[in-house]
Design a binder for these strands. Structure first.
Lengths: 211, 211, 211, 211
DNA sequence: TATGAATGAGCGTTCATTCAT
DNA sequence: AATGAATGAACGCTCATTCAT
């Protein structure tokens, strides 16, 4: 039945437009700061309609988080493919993460929330497993690149590959957070941009000259 | 009069117990998530009593933050004094920051919140200014150590001292956040501990061996 | 669609019942003395529902006032139209003001409150401006009548037209206040009625016979 | 015992200083707008002490009101004594009432409150009887002056003496209210001052020239 | 399916009043 | 007699959620 199909498509469309509106608002105002009314307004639907698609504000939030993950994955994969050497790949993936985050701060922020204890508490085990699983995959991918680099003598032999991945990821994330603040707190935007770009070199080359 | 003294002591005690309750709740539920009622309940006082000691929720929050900051400041200062070389000082300050954070996770969490956009939006400019001012002082202190190191040839001449401080701080913070999650998401606690301790070396010595 | 019409009618009805409840309470207890809860109770609605119709207590108050003012305006306009000479017009407007006030004491009281310093302090400038603007228009209308009377030699040439309007208005208001007290304080109701009716002559003809 | 006397005197002094503080605040901020704390602050006493002298905020308010009456009486009596003719006496009493009110707006406002239904509701019968009794005495005194004037042919024979007193009193009161508004609503201060002074002539001489 | 309307529960804050000392 | 400390009850207002249509 074409009618049924159309109905189904419209329903999916509605669902997407709710998610889109929610993402924008959650990332800008946070979970508590966002009201169902504001999401409904932005999606040009009534508040009650939201509850036909998501059984609570909570569930809508989770849906938004999950959707964001795949967008990051896509970008990082592309970035990596263009490079040959492990070092270049690490650098590329690092910078792609930064770029993607600055491009779509909303998604970045919503995802960061999943690392905040009090928000995670509201997520189902399944959800947490899915999110952390995906992130772990990236980190392991990064670790493999480092291992490869170690084998080729590009990276120090005593480097802990996974730990290094973790450190790089957290450093990037932390600096991006600063860069996304609406008003600078401890550093000005241009300074932060420069630091963001150079930060991977702090990690790769170190602060101390070596003999 | 011993009576007055006792009264004064009791008052200070009450004040402290409010701060303690607030710290626990702010760290667990965030600024918006924490209600004055819940703080009062935890401190076994009435909501109105809170207002005898703090003129608003925000002032209480600021008090908690500033108290936390001074605990950090104390610790970092001590750590630095024990060392001679700039490199050792940087390392010491870095590790002291981690140690102190793991010792008092609640305080750490409350302070991190001030870097979350939507929480800052609910704080007065003055509150934000006070907190970020203190943090900036640490960062500048770190930057001065790096400069000193550069002068002595211990650090690379092309290093951006303030940027390096920022990067180190954010890396530590990000890794501590992971370590404080009640359930591991992407790494196990022992692994994280190790990574935390080594992370400063990732920054100081770099990943790539240098010729 | 009849359904929509009915809905709209019901909505207007609800709005009116809120205004009615508010008017009764504001007139009895004043602006500060009246709570949104008490208005809701009287209108048999929940407190939150009030906010679907009026965005704040003040807006509701202003609505009640402005509605009251327009009822007065209507009445005064009608009264004036039936008369020819300025003197008759002044007399008619004066008596119409009294009649309307005695008919709808609640409205009268609500409007008087806007002249009480401490109530005005709780109203926004805009609210005060709107109310006093309307009242000023009446006073100016009264003053124009007096001017006209002066031109025709009906009123004394040295009469300050606006000042005379003010005096008449305040005298009427003050006497109405007495008449509306639930228990007589300084004069019995019949006596007050008589005084109210004659009071305009005290002003027009004066107490002293003139040679 | 001199000690007991002193104690008693101090107690009375305390009581007076509370009344004084209360009067200032009640008249400026109204009953609801004034807090027991603010009265205590102004009287340089603790809040709890207020309750040793007055059993509630209500009772304190009433005490303030009652005290104001005698001050007015004194002034009006003096004003009247200086004049000979009934007309001059009426004029003098009228202007003295205005002067005294403008001099001590606080007392004026507190007394006006007793004519507001919702405040009177809280007064004991005794209190209301006392206040209205005193006012009635003034009005009757005014009425006797008018009668005297009528006998001497100074006032119109058909004048209702008591009604005329009432009208004059309410007109004065109403205009004073306007004059005491912190921001002009319907007339500027100088205009109001002029109107206040002339208003008694509107009543005595009338608006219409007589043949 | 979609929604306008309604509301219970809760927010931060204030204040008259009480009570132990 | 005086008070510092405490609090219950309320305030205006908001919001996630429900329900009749």
């Amino acid at each position: 039945m074409g009618v049924k199909d159309r109905r189904e498509r419209e329903k999916q469309q509605r669902r997407l437009s709710i998610i889109e509106a929610a993402e924008a608002l959650f990332s800008e105002l946070g979970f508590e700061g966002t009201t169902m009314q504001s999401i409904a307004d932005r999606a040009e639907l009534s508040k009650a309609t939201l509850y036909l698609y998501f059984k609570s504000k909570e569930e809508l939030y989770l849906t938004v988080c999950m959707q964001g993950l795949s967008l990051f994955t896509d970008r990082l994969q592309k970035a990596v493919k263009r490079q040959r050497s492990p070092e270049a790949k690490v650098r590329a993936i690092y910078l792609a993460y930064i770029e993607r985050s600055l491009e779509d701060p909303m998604m970045f922020r919503v995802l960061q929330d999943t690392f905040i204890e009090r928000i995670r508490r509201n997520l189902s085990e399944e959800t947490v497993r899915q999110i952390s699983g995906t992130i772990r995959q990236w980190l392991e991918f990064g670790a493999r690149l480092v291992e490869e680099g170690k084998e080729r003598g590009i990276f120090r032999q005593d480097l802990d590959a996974y730990g290094f991945s973790l450190a790089a990821w957290r450093m990037a994330t932390g600096l991006i957070e600063l860069a996304l603040l609406s008003e600078p707190m401890v550093a000005e935007p241009p300074e932060l941009r420069r630091t963001l770009e150079r930060s991977i070199d702090y990690l790769l080359k170190g602060a101390c000259p070596q003999k």
